[in-house]
């Protein structure tokens, strides 16, 4: 199912359908995560991947238009690169211990400690939460800082009113750009009010 959805993503040129299918793809992978016992991850993937990122994609598509060009010719060089990469990865999996074996080395590094000692170290039943917030608190703080940085980046890129940047060299682009910016000039003034120190 996942592979079929991904192939459909490859084929489609209507970006609206692409955004919707990306949401479906996320939801399917969330189901797969549940099957593999990762309930927390499935929850996050369903909320983030299928919810928020679809909304963001749609918001972006509403701004940039809906259709994508059909690529003029089948691209053989990327295909070659992809197959070489895939072949190398398949060769690499031959050394990996089989799926689901309890004796895999990955289960006996720190996971044993987390599972056995967290009940009296921390005393909450959900091991994922205790590892996330306590044993690996530094890690989570780093992630929080990363999404904070992403917010700062998006605000720097998008909060400015679109009208002020009119000084591009190409005149044909400039004229079409000005026409489109007139439509939302009302909006940009309201944003200017909330951000007087901007720009």
């Amino acid at each position: 199912m996942l592979v079929l959805t991904a192939l459909a993503l490859l084929k489609l040129n209507n970006l609206f359908a692409v955004a919707m299918l990306a949401g479906i793809y996320s939801l399917l992978s969330a189901a797969l995560f549940t099957v593999m016992d990762a309930v927390d991850v499935a929850f996050t993937e369903a909320a983030v991947g299928a919810g928020i990122s679809t909304v963001l994609m749609l918001g972006c598509i509403a701004l940039v238009g809906q259709t994508s060009k059909q690529p003029p010719k089948p691209a053989f060089l990327p295909l070659f690169v992809v197959f070489v990469t895939g072949g190398m990865l398949v060769y690499g999996t031959l050394d990996i211990p089989p799926y689901g074996d309890p004796d895999n080395p990955v289960h006996h590094h720190v996971a044993d400690y987390y599972l056995e000692d967290s009940s009296h170290d921390i005393g909450i039943p959900n091991v994922v939460t205790s590892v996330l917030a306590s044993y690996r608190g530094y890690d989570t703080m780093g992630e929080t800082t990363v999404i904070f940085a992403a917010m700062v980046g998006v605000l720097l890129l998008l909060v400015q009113s679109p009208r002020r940047r009119g000084s591009y060299k190409d005149s044909s682009l400039k004229s079409s750009y000005h026409n489109s910016s007139d439509n939302h000039s009302m909006h940009s003034t309201s944003e200017d009010d909330s951000y007087p120190g901007d720009n």
Binding site: A38, V41, V106, H109, A111, V128, V131, L132, R136
Partner: peptide, 10 residues
């Protein structure tokens, strides 16, 4: 194993 779950969650 809870460790991959934590890593992927973030």
């Amino acid at each position: 194993n809870p460790l991959p779950h934590v890593l992927i969650l973030t």
